[in-house]
């Protein structure tokens, strides 16, 4: 067991953000947290990394758990000069070759001398992932990591996630609101809306009434579209006409 939440509740001020959250993550597992805006997804992540102290409940982490964290977005002040290479070596240094390999693997080779603030959103997201992987994490936390990426970009990103688990053997916990995209890569889905509505395998969750109540018809038709695509490789046009 890498991390375990037992009846975790978080209040910010007087407002209850998370209530009675219980789940655990095993090594090499890929778990997706799904929830509408304001459902407490990011708060849950912040609690897991220790930025927020839970009001009640118990959070247990494996001794010396190494966490790789890829935030939703990262604002870097333009007064702070930072090359990609320097960022990759923060907090601990790696050899030039290790950094170059990590960047190449992330699909952004030869960026190492660029300033971080000059990167595009997609490039920066890949650099963030590459940096998180350099720390050789037990658990990778991805907070809406594909936000700002186009369809192709996010598909590439998730393919890379799958290969990360295969090659590095780390567990992955990610936040997403696109079940249809993550479905194939994830072992388990947790639907969050202040509390855990339902959890289980993606196919089970996407058929459950709780899931439909939470996301309404939009997501449902998108999910159906995705499943449909899964069987027909030439359904490109259909997707365009539906989009």
């Amino acid at each position: 067991m890498l991390i375990e939440c037992d009846n975790l509740s978080v209040h910010i001020g007087k407002k209850s953000i998370l209530k009675d959250i219980s789940f655990s993550i095993s090594p090499k597992e890929i778990v997706t947290i799904l929830g509408p805006n304001g459902s407490g997804k990011t708060t849950l992540f912040k609690t897991l990394i220790g930025a927020i102290t839970p009001t009640s409940g118990i959070l247990t982490k494996k001794y010396r758990l190494r966490i790789g964290y890829v935030p939703q977005r990262l604002h870097i002040d333009e007064t702070l000069p930072m090359t990609v290479r320097r960022f990759m070596n923060l907090p601990s240094g790696h050899s030039k070759k290790t950094v170059a390999d990590a960047l190449a693997h992330a699909g952004v080779p030869e960026l190492d001398k660029q300033q971080i603030i000059d990167l595009s959103g997609g490039q920066f997201q890949r650099v963030l992932l590459a940096r998180a992987l350099l720390g050789n994490p037990d658990l990778l936390l991805l907070d809406e990591a594909t936000q700002g990426l186009d369809h192709r970009g996010s598909a590439d990103f998730y393919r890379q996630i799958a290969s990360v688990r295969k090659n590095l053997g780390c567990a992955i916990l990610m936040i997403s609101h696109e079940l249809h995209v993550v479905m194939r890569q994830t072992d388990r889905v947790i639907c969050l809306n202040g509390h855990i509505c339902c959890q289980g395998e993606p196919e089970v969750v996407s058929d459950s009434p709780e899931y439909h109540a939470l996301f309404g018809l939009d997501q449902e038709s998108e999910a159906a579209l995705y499943l449909h695509q899964g069987h027909h490789s030439h359904s490109h046009l259909k997707q365009v006409s539906n989009a």
Binding site: I49, G68, Y69, P71, L80, P91
Partner: peptide, 9 residues
């Protein structure tokens, strides 16, 4: 750079 990145490390 970012408080959450620091916490995670």
């Amino acid at each position: 750079l970012n408080a959450d990145l620091a916490l995670a490390s």
